[in-house]
Protein backbone atom coordinates (compact mmCIF):
# COMPACT_ATOMS: atom_id res chain seq x y z
CA UNK A 1 0.00 0.00 0.00
CA UNK A 2 1.49 3.27 -1.09
CA UNK A 3 -0.08 5.36 1.67
CA UNK A 4 1.85 3.44 4.28
CA UNK A 5 5.12 4.73 2.94
CA UNK A 6 3.92 8.34 2.85
CA UNK A 7 2.64 8.43 6.43
CA UNK A 8 3.78 7.06 9.74
CA UNK A 9 2.12 3.90 11.11
CA UNK A 10 -1.50 4.78 11.92
CA UNK A 11 -1.01 8.25 10.40
CA UNK A 12 0.16 10.28 13.40
CA UNK A 13 3.88 10.87 13.96
CA UNK A 14 5.45 9.19 16.98
CA UNK A 15 5.92 12.42 18.90
CA UNK A 16 2.22 13.22 18.63
CA UNK A 17 1.34 9.68 19.68
CA UNK A 18 3.54 10.03 22.77
CA UNK A 19 1.76 13.26 23.65
CA UNK A 20 -1.63 11.54 23.27
CA UNK A 21 -0.47 8.51 25.25
CA UNK A 22 0.59 10.78 28.09
CA UNK A 23 -2.90 12.30 28.09
CA UNK A 24 -4.44 8.80 28.04
CA UNK A 25 -2.29 7.67 30.95
CA UNK A 26 -3.23 10.74 32.92
CA UNK A 27 -6.88 10.06 32.13
CA UNK A 28 -6.55 6.45 33.29
CA UNK A 29 -4.89 7.64 36.48
CA UNK A 30 -7.73 10.08 37.23
CA UNK A 31 -10.86 8.28 36.03
CA UNK A 32 -13.47 10.63 34.62
CA UNK A 33 -11.21 13.69 34.60
CA UNK A 34 -11.03 15.51 31.26
CA UNK A 35 -7.38 15.85 30.25
CA UNK A 36 -6.65 18.68 27.80
CA UNK A 37 -4.53 17.52 24.88
CA UNK A 38 -3.16 19.20 21.76
CA UNK A 39 -5.62 17.71 19.33
CA UNK A 40 -4.23 17.59 15.79
CA UNK A 41 -5.98 18.56 12.63
CA UNK A 42 -6.92 15.25 11.12
CA UNK A 43 -7.78 14.52 7.50
CA UNK A 44 -11.42 14.12 8.46
CA UNK A 45 -13.71 16.85 9.81
CA UNK A 46 -13.95 17.79 13.46
CA UNK A 47 -17.09 16.26 14.88
CA UNK A 48 -16.65 13.13 12.73
CA UNK A 49 -14.54 11.16 15.15
CA UNK A 50 -11.20 12.98 15.11
CA UNK A 51 -10.81 12.51 18.87
CA UNK A 52 -11.53 8.80 18.68
CA UNK A 53 -9.24 8.43 15.65
CA UNK A 54 -6.35 10.11 17.47
CA UNK A 55 -6.83 7.92 20.55
CA UNK A 56 -7.07 4.79 18.37
CA UNK A 57 -3.98 5.86 16.44
CA UNK A 58 -2.03 6.29 19.68
CA UNK A 59 -3.15 2.84 20.94
CA UNK A 60 -2.70 0.74 17.80
CA UNK A 61 0.20 -1.68 17.35
CA UNK A 62 0.74 -3.73 14.18
CA UNK A 63 -0.65 -6.90 15.86
CA UNK A 64 -4.02 -5.26 16.65
CA UNK A 65 -7.35 -6.27 15.16
CA UNK A 66 -9.59 -3.23 14.80
CA UNK A 67 -13.36 -3.01 14.78
CA UNK A 68 -15.15 0.26 14.01
CA UNK A 69 -18.85 0.80 14.63
CA UNK A 70 -21.20 3.73 14.29
CA UNK A 71 -24.69 3.40 15.81
CA UNK A 72 -23.71 -0.17 16.68
CA UNK A 73 -23.20 -1.10 13.03
CA UNK A 74 -19.98 -1.95 11.19
CA UNK A 75 -21.31 -0.90 7.80
CA UNK A 76 -22.50 2.67 8.37
CA UNK A 77 -20.64 5.11 6.13
CA UNK A 78 -18.57 6.84 8.78
CA UNK A 79 -17.55 3.52 10.35
CA UNK A 80 -16.52 2.28 6.91
CA UNK A 81 -14.56 5.46 6.30
CA UNK A 82 -12.66 5.30 9.61
CA UNK A 83 -11.95 1.57 9.27
CA UNK A 84 -10.55 2.19 5.78
CA UNK A 85 -8.41 5.02 7.10
CA UNK A 86 -6.62 2.68 9.48
CA UNK A 87 -6.39 -0.09 6.91
CA UNK A 88 -4.65 2.38 4.60
CA UNK A 89 -2.41 4.06 7.14
CA UNK A 90 -1.66 1.16 9.52
CA UNK A 91 -2.25 -1.91 7.38
CA UNK A 92 -3.72 -3.67 10.40
CA UNK A 93 -6.23 -6.46 10.41
CA UNK A 94 -9.87 -5.49 10.82
CA UNK A 95 -12.83 -7.47 12.06
CA UNK A 96 -16.54 -7.10 12.65
CA UNK A 97 -16.60 -9.64 15.49
CA UNK A 98 -16.61 -7.92 18.86
CA UNK A 99 -14.93 -10.85 20.59
CA UNK A 100 -12.06 -10.94 18.05
CA UNK A 101 -11.24 -7.24 18.17
CA UNK A 102 -8.41 -5.90 20.32
CA UNK A 103 -9.37 -2.27 19.72
CA UNK A 104 -12.94 -1.12 19.03
CA UNK A 105 -13.70 2.44 18.01
CA UNK A 106 -17.33 3.34 18.53
CA UNK A 107 -19.78 6.13 18.03
CA UNK A 108 -22.94 6.09 20.17
CA UNK A 109 -23.01 2.43 21.29
CA UNK A 110 -21.33 -0.12 23.55
CA UNK A 111 -21.36 -3.57 21.90
CA UNK A 112 -23.85 -6.08 23.28
CA UNK A 113 -21.25 -8.84 23.62
CA UNK A 114 -19.52 -8.26 26.96
CA UNK A 115 -15.98 -6.94 26.55
CA UNK A 116 -13.05 -8.75 28.07
CA UNK A 117 -9.75 -7.87 29.73
CA UNK A 118 -7.18 -6.61 27.26
CA UNK A 119 -9.71 -5.03 24.92
CA UNK A 120 -9.78 -1.26 24.40
CA UNK A 121 -13.03 0.54 23.61
CA UNK A 122 -12.50 3.99 22.11
CA UNK A 123 -15.45 6.40 22.12
CA UNK A 124 -15.89 9.33 19.76
CA UNK A 125 -17.06 12.26 21.86
CA UNK A 126 -18.68 15.42 20.46
CA UNK A 127 -19.08 17.41 23.70
CA UNK A 128 -17.03 16.00 26.59
CA UNK A 129 -18.38 18.42 29.17
CA UNK A 130 -21.45 17.05 31.00
CA UNK A 131 -22.16 20.52 32.37
CA UNK A 132 -21.88 22.31 29.02
CA UNK A 133 -25.58 22.79 28.33
CA UNK A 134 -26.15 24.03 31.85
CA UNK A 135 -23.13 26.35 31.84
CA UNK A 136 -21.58 27.33 28.49
CA UNK A 137 -18.28 28.67 29.88
CA UNK A 138 -15.30 26.34 29.91
CA UNK A 139 -13.56 28.46 32.57
CA UNK A 140 -16.64 28.05 34.77
CA UNK A 141 -17.24 24.33 34.21
CA UNK A 142 -13.62 23.46 34.99
CA UNK A 143 -14.02 25.26 38.27
CA UNK A 144 -17.25 23.39 38.97
CA UNK A 145 -15.44 20.06 38.48
CA UNK A 146 -12.58 21.21 40.68
CA UNK A 147 -15.01 22.06 43.48
CA UNK A 148 -17.30 19.08 42.85
CA UNK A 149 -19.94 21.74 42.44
CA UNK A 150 -22.48 19.46 40.80
CA UNK A 151 -25.71 20.86 42.24
CA UNK A 152 -26.72 22.20 38.85
CA UNK A 153 -26.56 18.72 37.34
CA UNK A 154 -29.24 17.56 39.74
CA UNK A 155 -31.28 20.71 39.14
CA UNK A 156 -31.62 19.51 35.55
CA UNK A 157 -32.85 16.08 36.74
CA UNK A 158 -35.15 17.75 39.29
CA UNK A 159 -36.70 19.85 36.53
CA UNK A 160 -37.25 16.75 34.39
CA UNK A 161 -39.15 15.01 37.15
CA UNK A 162 -41.22 18.04 38.10
CA UNK A 163 -42.21 18.52 34.47
CA UNK A 164 -42.42 14.98 33.09
CA UNK A 165 -42.73 12.82 36.19
CA UNK A 166 -39.44 11.13 35.33
CA UNK A 167 -35.89 11.88 34.27
CA UNK A 168 -36.26 12.79 30.61
CA UNK A 169 -32.71 12.17 29.45
CA UNK A 170 -32.61 9.31 27.00
CA UNK A 171 -29.00 9.37 25.85
CA UNK A 172 -25.75 11.11 26.82
CA UNK A 173 -26.81 10.33 30.38
CA UNK A 174 -24.17 11.57 32.86
CA UNK A 175 -22.41 9.29 35.33
CA UNK A 176 -20.39 9.90 38.46
CA UNK A 177 -17.06 8.11 38.38
CA UNK A 178 -15.67 6.57 41.57
CA UNK A 179 -17.61 9.12 43.61
CA UNK A 180 -15.63 12.03 42.20
CA UNK A 181 -15.96 13.35 38.63
CA UNK A 182 -19.22 13.68 36.78
CA UNK A 183 -18.53 12.37 33.29
CA UNK A 184 -20.24 12.52 29.93
CA UNK A 185 -20.40 8.98 28.50
CA UNK A 186 -20.75 10.37 24.91
CA UNK A 187 -24.18 10.12 23.30
CA UNK A 188 -24.76 6.42 23.98
CA UNK A 189 -28.36 5.50 24.82
CA UNK A 190 -28.92 5.24 28.56
CA UNK A 191 -29.57 1.55 27.89
CA UNK A 192 -25.78 1.22 27.60
CA UNK A 193 -24.96 3.10 30.81
CA UNK A 194 -24.86 0.02 33.07
CA UNK A 195 -22.06 -1.38 30.89
CA UNK A 196 -19.82 1.61 31.65
CA UNK A 197 -19.17 0.66 35.26
CA UNK A 198 -17.23 -2.48 36.19
CA UNK A 199 -16.32 -3.14 32.57
CA UNK A 200 -13.32 -5.46 32.03
CA UNK A 201 -12.08 -3.45 29.04
CA UNK A 202 -10.24 -0.14 29.08
CA UNK A 203 -12.64 2.58 27.97
CA UNK A 204 -11.06 5.67 26.40
CA UNK A 205 -12.93 8.79 25.33
CA UNK A 206 -11.54 11.20 22.72
CA UNK A 207 -12.96 14.63 21.87
CA UNK A 208 -10.90 16.11 19.04
CA UNK A 209 -12.51 19.48 18.49
CA UNK A 210 -12.81 20.15 22.21
CA UNK A 211 -9.28 18.82 22.83
CA UNK A 212 -10.09 16.48 25.70
CA UNK A 213 -9.30 12.86 26.54
CA UNK A 214 -10.75 10.95 29.48
CA UNK A 215 -10.89 7.35 30.57
CA UNK A 216 -12.47 4.60 32.60
CA UNK A 217 -9.87 1.99 33.56
CA UNK A 218 -11.13 -1.61 33.87
CA UNK A 219 -13.58 -2.31 36.68
CA UNK A 220 -14.17 1.37 37.49
CA UNK A 221 -17.33 2.42 39.24
CA UNK A 222 -19.57 4.63 37.07
CA UNK A 223 -22.96 5.44 38.53
CA UNK A 224 -25.72 7.08 36.52
CA UNK A 225 -26.97 10.18 38.31
CA UNK A 226 -30.42 9.91 39.81
CA UNK A 227 -32.50 10.52 42.94
CA UNK A 228 -33.01 7.99 45.71
CA UNK A 229 -36.74 7.98 45.04
CA UNK A 230 -36.38 8.20 41.22
CA UNK A 231 -33.68 5.66 40.48
CA UNK A 232 -31.99 5.38 37.09
CA UNK A 233 -33.49 2.84 34.72
CA UNK A 234 -31.93 1.60 31.50
CA UNK A 235 -34.59 1.41 28.82
CA UNK A 236 -35.08 0.23 25.28
CA UNK A 237 -37.94 -0.38 22.87
CA UNK A 238 -40.33 -2.90 24.36
CA UNK A 239 -39.80 -5.51 21.66
CA UNK A 240 -37.57 -8.40 20.73
CA UNK A 241 -35.39 -8.20 17.62
CA UNK A 242 -37.46 -9.16 14.58
CA UNK A 243 -34.43 -10.71 12.91
CA UNK A 244 -32.71 -12.69 15.65
CA UNK A 245 -35.31 -12.70 18.38
CA UNK A 246 -32.99 -11.24 21.03
CA UNK A 247 -35.17 -9.88 23.85
CA UNK A 248 -32.46 -7.87 25.58
CA UNK A 249 -30.50 -5.99 22.92
CA UNK A 250 -30.81 -2.33 21.97
CA UNK A 251 -33.07 -1.95 18.94
CA UNK A 252 -33.31 0.28 15.89
CA UNK A 253 -36.77 0.99 14.61
CA UNK A 254 -37.06 0.58 10.85
CA UNK A 255 -40.00 1.89 8.86
CA UNK A 256 -40.83 -0.77 6.29
CA UNK A 257 -43.54 0.82 4.15
CA UNK A 258 -45.42 4.08 3.72
CA UNK A 259 -48.33 2.76 5.78
CA UNK A 260 -46.26 3.22 8.94
CA UNK A 261 -45.43 -0.45 9.37
CA UNK A 262 -42.25 -0.89 11.29
CA UNK A 263 -39.93 -3.52 12.61
CA UNK A 264 -37.33 -3.61 15.32
CA UNK A 265 -33.82 -4.89 14.71
CA UNK A 266 -30.65 -5.05 16.81
CA UNK A 267 -28.55 -1.92 16.44
CA UNK A 268 -25.47 -4.12 17.03
CA UNK A 269 -25.12 -5.77 13.61
CA UNK A 270 -22.40 -8.20 14.69
CA UNK A 271 -24.46 -9.38 17.67
CA UNK A 272 -27.55 -9.89 15.53
CA UNK A 273 -25.68 -11.70 12.73
CA UNK A 274 -23.91 -14.04 15.17
CA UNK A 275 -27.18 -14.96 16.83
CA UNK A 276 -28.79 -15.77 13.49
CA UNK A 277 -25.75 -17.79 12.47
CA UNK A 278 -26.18 -19.73 15.70
CA UNK A 279 -29.77 -20.50 14.79
CA UNK A 280 -31.73 -17.82 16.68
CA UNK A 281 -34.39 -16.60 14.31
CA UNK A 282 -36.88 -13.80 14.92
CA UNK A 283 -40.35 -13.48 13.35
CA UNK A 284 -39.04 -11.69 10.22
CA UNK A 285 -35.55 -13.14 10.01
CA UNK A 286 -33.86 -15.91 8.08
CA UNK A 287 -30.52 -17.48 9.01
CA UNK A 288 -28.82 -15.90 5.97
CA UNK A 289 -30.56 -12.53 5.80
CA UNK A 290 -28.27 -9.59 6.16
CA UNK A 291 -25.39 -12.03 6.76
Amino acid sequence: MTDQTAYNFAYLDEQTKRMIRRAILKGVAIPGYQVPFASREMPMPYGWGTGGVQVTSACLVPEDRLKVIDQGADDTTNAVSIRRFFQRTAGIEVTEATADATVIQTRHRIPETPLTEGQILVYQVPIPEPLRFLEPRETETRKMHELEDYGLMHVKLYEDISRHGQIATAYDYPVKVEGRYVMDPSPIPKFDNPKLGGNAAIQLFGAGREQRIYALPPYTQAISLDFDDYPFTASKADHACDLCGAPDSYLDEVITDDQGSRMFVCSDTDFCGSRRAAGHIGPMGTPSAGG
Binding site: W48, D70, Q71, G72, T76, T77, N78, R107, H108, R109, A170, Y171, D172, P187, I188, P189, K190, F191, S235, A237, Y250, L251, D252, E253, S267
Partner: peptide, 11 residues
Protein backbone atom coordinates in the same frame (compact mmCIF):
# COMPACT_ATOMS: atom_id res chain seq x y z
CA UNK B 1 -24.13 11.71 10.36
CA UNK B 2 -26.52 8.98 11.49
CA UNK B 3 -27.97 9.53 14.93
CA UNK B 4 -30.45 6.63 14.87
CA UNK B 5 -29.47 5.38 18.27
CA UNK B 6 -30.02 8.71 20.02
CA UNK B 7 -33.14 9.37 18.01
CA UNK B 8 -34.50 5.94 18.93
CA UNK B 9 -33.89 6.65 22.62
CA UNK B 10 -35.76 9.96 22.31
CA UNK B 11 -38.56 8.27 20.38
Amino acid sequence: LPHYVDFQAEL
